[in-house]
Amino acid sequence: MCLFQYEDDPEPEERVPAGPLYVPVLPGRAEVVVRLFRTPLGARTAVGFTSAERLAATLGAGHSWIRLSESALRTMAEPVGASLLTVDPTLTAPAVSGTAAGTAAGTATTPVPQAPETVARTA
């Protein structure tokens, strides 16, 4: 019986760096403010996307973003209580009907993650 060892295979629980991320920021500010979100259970999480297309598909076209490394995003988020990092999240809530949302009949709105919170500011 021959056993093979693959020393370069990471263990499933090992965190592998995600690389440079597209990180959502709050628009319309003089400084850049990174957005934080909440998980379905209410925990604060920093969010990053592996492409601008994935960010736009989740948060909408034209959403402001900056590029940050995973470690930089974690360093910025941890002091304000966001020890989690969610990469490429998708929204799973169904669209709200137009009449229930108070919009014109026949239209639907796409829910977005909970209200953003300030993580860090850069000039």
Results as ranks from 00 to 15, higher is better:
T99C: 15
R29C: 05
P94V: 03
P111H: 07
A61F: 01
E14M: 09
P24K: 03
T90V: 08
A93I: 01
G19R: 04
D8H: 08
T39M: 08
G106D: 02
F4P: 15
P24A: 06
V47F: 02
G19Q: 04
A46K: 01
P10A: 03
M76K: 05
Q5F: 09
G102D: 07
G42W: 06
E53M: 11
P10W: 09
L85M: 04
L59E: 02
A43S: 15
Y6T: 13
L91M: 14
V112A: 06
T103Y: 12
L84G: 00
C2N: 13
L55P: 15
Y6C: 15
E14K: 10
R74V: 13
A56K: 05
Y6V: 13
R15F: 11
L21G: 06
I66V: 12
M1K: 09
L68S: 01
A43L: 15
F4R: 14
T39R: 07
P12Q: 01
G98E: 07
Y6G: 14
G48E: 04
E117P: 13
E78P: 00
L21C: 07
P79M: 08
A56L: 01
R29I: 00
A95N: 12
R67T: 14
T58H: 03
V47L: 04
Y22S: 11
R44H: 05
L26P: 00
A77S: 07
Q114W: 14
T90L: 01
T39D: 13
L91F: 08
R15P: 13
G62S: 01
L55N: 10
P79F: 08
L73R: 08
E70I: 00
T92W: 09
R38P: 15
T103N: 14
E117D: 08
P79H: 08
E13K: 02
D88H: 08
A43M: 15
V119S: 06
L55Y: 06
G98K: 04
A30M: 12
L36D: 05
V47Q: 02
E7I: 00
L91Q: 15
T110K: 06
P89F: 01
R67K: 08
G62W: 00
T39V: 12
P113I: 06
G62E: 04
L73T: 06
Y22R: 09
F49W: 12
R67L: 10
E117K: 04
R44T: 12
V87D: 11
A108P: 15
Q5G: 14
C2G: 09
P24S: 01
T75R: 13
L3M: 06
L68F: 03
V23P: 00
A77R: 01
T86K: 03
T122H: 04
A72L: 10
V112E: 13
T39A: 10
E70G: 03
A104T: 05
D9P: 00
Y22T: 07
V25G: 11
Q5C: 15
T86G: 08
T92Y: 10
R15L: 12
L36I: 09
H63M: 09
A18R: 07
G81S: 08
E70L: 05
P94S: 02
R74M: 11
S69Q: 07
A123D: 10
R35M: 14
T90D: 06
Y6H: 15
R121V: 02
T122E: 11
L21Y: 06
D88E: 03
A115K: 11
G42M: 03
T86A: 10
P94I: 02
W65A: 05
G19L: 00
T45F: 09
M76C: 00
A100H: 13
